[in-house]
């Protein structure tokens, strides 16, 4: 009898652990960031760099980005008004501090509510997650810039950012 109970308990514990790991992998874990699902946003934001998951910045940051597209980190990335509206709607709905963030709120730990950071690579969490990356890795030719997530996170376009 005790063997049966023991195996049931062990099975239940294993199942629970698996379920927890699965849910962590799916939402807001250190490894999964819901990718952009709106095709227009994906296309327009993914023209020059990867279309970064909306949950990587708070809504106030995206608002500033969208207001300054004609000088987007020094480049003209402006789009027509209808396109801008659709992208903005998507970003507002999926930003890190929005209801549809897919569990990304923890990503903003350490960011002041008054600040509207523009560079994802300057967020405290991003810096922390990359603190072990050697300087020589960043300067590798195929990396080119910190905006090139897929150079190391090969499945980043699908939202998976595990340590590769």
């Amino acid at each position: 009898m005790t063997t049966v109970i023991r195996s049931i308990v062990v099975g239940a514990v294993l199942f629970a652990a698996g379920a927890v790991m699965l849910s962590r992998a799916k939402a807001g874990s250190d490894e999964f960031f819901p990718p952009v699902t709106d095709p227009l946003t994906r296309q327009e934001c993914g023209g020059c760099h990867m279309a970064f998951p909306a949950g990587l910045l708070p809504a106030r940051s995206w608002q500033k980005v969208m207001g300054e597209l004609d000088n987007h980190f020094g480049d003209d990335a402006s789009v027509d008004a209808a396109t801008a509206r659709q992208i903005n709607t998507y970003l507002m709905a999926h930003a890190a501090d929005s209801a549809g963030n897919g569990g990304m709120h923890r990503w903003l730990r350490g960011v002041s509510a008054a600040a509207a950071p523009q560079r994802i690579t300057e967020l405290p969490k991003w810096v922390r997650e990359h603190r072990e990356v050697a300087r020589s890795d960043w300067t590798r030719k195929e990396v080119a810039s910190k905006a090139n997530c897929v150079a190391c996170h090969v499945d980043a376009e699908r939202g998976y950012f595990e340590d590769d």
Partner: peptide, 17 residues
């Protein structure tokens, strides 16, 4: 600078895409 010398090969943006 971005599209490369070979028109039939892939190019690369300044940030690496």
């Amino acid at each position: 600078s971005c599209h490369g010398d070979k028109t039939r090969a892939a190019g690369r943006t300044p940030v690496g895409k």
